[in-house]
Nucleic acid binder design. Structure first.
Lengths: 119, 119
DNA sequence: GTAATGTGCAACCAAATGGTTGTAGATCAG
DNA sequence: CTGATCTACAACCATTTGGTTGCACATTAC
């Protein structure tokens, strides 16, 4: 099953965005409530520009959204992005589960019986 | 909620391993049944050494395991690794869900209750 | 035995990543 | 208005990543 219209590059960006501790922490923080970029930057021992870049990576990965709010830029979590990533992992597990079920069937069936595809 | 004993570096490796299309494809293939490294390499338009490196990345991320089988090395999916990644994503969603529930509560409650959460 | 196959590893290279500093444009406070 | 704050973006740098080729070593086939 293909997940939506996601290109491989989209999936690359999703997981790559999640592969950095600072970015995962940003997602956690904005998941608990929206924050400005500078508000986020205050938490980390790195420059504002670095945090800005992390937010940009998360935005391109559709894990957060930004909205201009006066002179600030409010960062919000995008629940769809997270759900998408989880669904992708579910796909992998589904493939494995089907194989496991097929093997179980083979073991359960009498020897010589043909294996049918489980749902 | 901390997931098991995973270090941040472990999580980095997990998601980083999944951020490459070739590696995700390898996981799909071995999820459907174990394969040798050279068997896998036959599918991709890159050198054997490159595929070997991808498998090594997946192995360090605990997404696959290798087992020596004669002169071959059988690569298998590690369902625990996948389940771990999914659980990590569940954590993020849980944080967001809790916040959403809290907001819903605030909206449901009678007005006059003091809200700590800015809109 | 010799030859072919499967693997591991080192050295190398181009491109991407994660950080920095510096500059400049908006917006808000006084 | 002036000054402080928030953001955007460019240029630069060190390290990592994803690929290559080449060589060494085990195991299997003939």
């Amino acid at each position: 099953m293909v997940v939506d219209q996601l290109s491989e590059d989209d999936v690359d960006r999703l997981f790559q965005a999640l592969s950095d501790g600072t970015r995962r922490d940003i997602v956690r923080r904005v998941a608990a409530g929206p924050m400005s970029v500078s508000g986020l930057a205050a938490f980390y021992a790195m420059s504002f520009a670095a945090v800005q870049k992390h937010v940009a990576v998360l935005e391109r990965a559709t894990l957060v959204t930004k909205e201009k709010r006066g002179r600030e830029q409010l960062v919000r979590v995008n629940p769809d992005g997270l759900a998408l990533a989880r669904r992708l992992l579910d796909e992998f597990e589904e493939i494995w589960r089907q194989r496991a079920a097929r093997i179980t069937d083979l073991l359960d069936e009498a020897p010589g019986a043909q294996a049918k595809e489980p749902s």
